[in-house]
Write a protein that binds this DNA or RNA. Structure first.
Length: 106
DNA sequence: TATATGACGACGA
DNA sequence: ATCGTCGCCATAT
């Protein structure tokens, strides 16, 4: 996946549009990016950011309302950032009903 | 060329 | 609610 791959560009643009205090699922981001059914691709792209980004990558969670596990301190950091903007995270979980981003509604 | 492995998700049991 | 299974597809080996 090249840095200038249009799919990657669209995915990052969608992530960048998620407002503070709200979260989006991997599948939701994929759909908004014009890549329905490619949730894994979203996770893959975010993984390549490796924190070296200003993008709100922490606002992307799984469809089950959980912070996806991964090696390292990523998950903990994600929970920390979400709580910092008003999204309660308990045991790696949060209430999607309450914080899911309604695309195209800001 | 072939298999394994994921920041995933929908479904059925 | 939890667990397998399967579809998905870019990368790594």
């Amino acid at each position: 996946m090249q840095p200038d791959d249009p799919r990657r560009q669209r995915i990052l643009a969608v992530v960048d549009s998620i407002p503070p205090g709200r979260v989006a699922t991997y599948g939701q981001v994929a759909g908004e990016a014009g890549l329905p059914g490619r949730a894994r691709l979203v996770g893959r792209v975010l993984g390549e950011l490796a924190g070296a980004s200003e993008l709100p990558w922490h606002r992307v969670v799984s469809a089950s309302g959980r912070i996806s596990t991964r090696p390292g301190a990523g998950p903990q950091e994600q929970g920390r950032r979400l709580r910092a903007e008003g999204v309660p995270v308990l045991h790696g979980r949060l209430d999607l009903r309450r914080h899911l981003w309604q695309a195209g509604q800001d």
